[in-house]
Simulated scan of single mutants.
Amino acid sequence: MRKLILSAVLASASLLGMSAVQAEPAQDIQAGKQYVELSSPVPVAQPGKIEVVELFWYGCPHCYQFEPSINAWAEKLPEDVHFLRIPAMFGGLWNVHGQLFLALESMGVEPKVHGAIFEAIHKEGKRLSTPEEMADFLAAHGIDKDSFLKAYNSFAVKSQMEKAKKLAMAYQISGVPVMIVNGKYRFDLGTAGGPQGTLAVADYLIAKERAAR
């Protein structure tokens, strides 16, 4: 497990090599520099809207640190933008936490406890590595244990896990946090220059897609 956690930290840390770099003006944002244009566009979940995806892992410290910035940004998105989170699953605890997120999403309660899960892992030292540990934790936040366990083990959630894995492969990601705009453009904290640079790139690409309509 130490090897898994170390590899996870390294995977996410590799995206932050340029995290101290200031965000560049919008006119300097270029394909191949701050973002990559995917060779094969990936279909979006809601055709007609500009899709923005964040791929994350609850155990990733950089995802945790990115949360306040991306949450504030997402709250102000216009109606023509569809923002969604997808759990990255590279095996082991990544998959367990991904299944947790998707179970809560299927229950319609994910927004209520998303932040609390990050806090539990990164500030309280909880691992949330088993369904029973998750159910006990969630019960303290008003979520019925039996309902959660039923959702966690459901065929629907396991199907969503397979879909999320296929999307991550299509996006060609190697670490988190990473963002995708409209199934066409991939970028992360390292290439974009930190949290604010990442969101500036997202804004630029949203505007680019809107103008191309």
Rank of each mutant, 00 (worst) to 15 (best):
residue 42 V to F: 02
residue 91 G to M: 05
residue 105 E to W: 01
residue 207 A to K: 15
residue 203 D to Q: 15
residue 170 A to F: 02
residue 20 A to M: 08
residue 116 A to R: 13
residue 6 L to W: 02
residue 70 I to A: 03
residue 116 A to N: 11
residue 171 Y to G: 05
residue 207 A to D: 14
residue 193 G to R: 05
residue 139 A to M: 07
residue 192 A to W: 05
residue 139 A to L: 12
residue 194 G to W: 08
residue 59 G to P: 03
residue 30 Q to T: 11
residue 187 F to S: 04
residue 150 K to R: 12
residue 67 E to Y: 05
residue 20 A to W: 02
residue 79 E to I: 00
residue 127 R to W: 00
residue 46 Q to N: 13
residue 95 N to I: 04
residue 210 R to T: 11
residue 159 S to V: 01
residue 113 V to S: 01
residue 175 G to A: 04
residue 128 L to F: 11
residue 5 I to M: 14
residue 126 K to P: 02
residue 182 N to R: 02
residue 122 H to V: 06
residue 42 V to R: 05
residue 153 N to C: 01
residue 161 M to E: 14
residue 96 V to Q: 14
residue 121 I to G: 04
residue 14 S to K: 08
residue 172 Q to L: 02
residue 86 I to N: 07
residue 135 A to R: 07
residue 57 W to Q: 10
residue 91 G to Y: 07
residue 183 G to Y: 08
residue 127 R to H: 08
residue 141 H to M: 11
residue 21 V to I: 14
residue 194 G to M: 11
residue 188 D to Y: 02
residue 189 L to W: 00
residue 18 M to F: 10
residue 61 P to T: 02
residue 58 Y to M: 08
residue 76 K to T: 12
residue 14 S to F: 03
residue 176 V to K: 01
residue 18 M to V: 01
residue 209 E to S: 11
residue 3 K to M: 11
residue 9 V to L: 13
residue 109 V to W: 04
residue 48 G to T: 10
residue 196 Q to W: 10
residue 156 A to I: 10
residue 128 L to W: 09
residue 82 H to E: 12
residue 213 R to M: 10
residue 195 P to G: 01
residue 174 S to T: 15
residue 210 R to H: 13
residue 81 V to M: 05
residue 149 L to I: 13
residue 97 H to A: 08
residue 74 A to P: 03
residue 147 S to D: 14
residue 192 A to P: 10
residue 1 M to D: 13
residue 175 G to S: 03
residue 69 S to K: 06
residue 173 I to E: 04
residue 51 E to V: 11
residue 133 E to T: 09
residue 39 S to E: 15
residue 16 L to R: 06
residue 135 A to T: 06
residue 10 L to V: 02
residue 174 S to W: 02
residue 71 N to D: 12
residue 27 Q to D: 15
residue 162 E to I: 02
residue 85 R to P: 01
residue 24 E to V: 15
residue 76 K to H: 08
residue 95 N to K: 07
residue 147 S to H: 09
residue 9 V to M: 07
residue 136 D to P: 00
residue 54 E to I: 01
residue 172 Q to R: 13
residue 171 Y to L: 04
residue 67 E to T: 07
residue 83 F to Y: 15
residue 193 G to D: 07
residue 161 M to C: 11
residue 88 A to F: 11
residue 167 L to E: 05
residue 152 Y to K: 05
residue 18 M to D: 12
residue 99 Q to Y: 00
residue 52 V to Q: 08
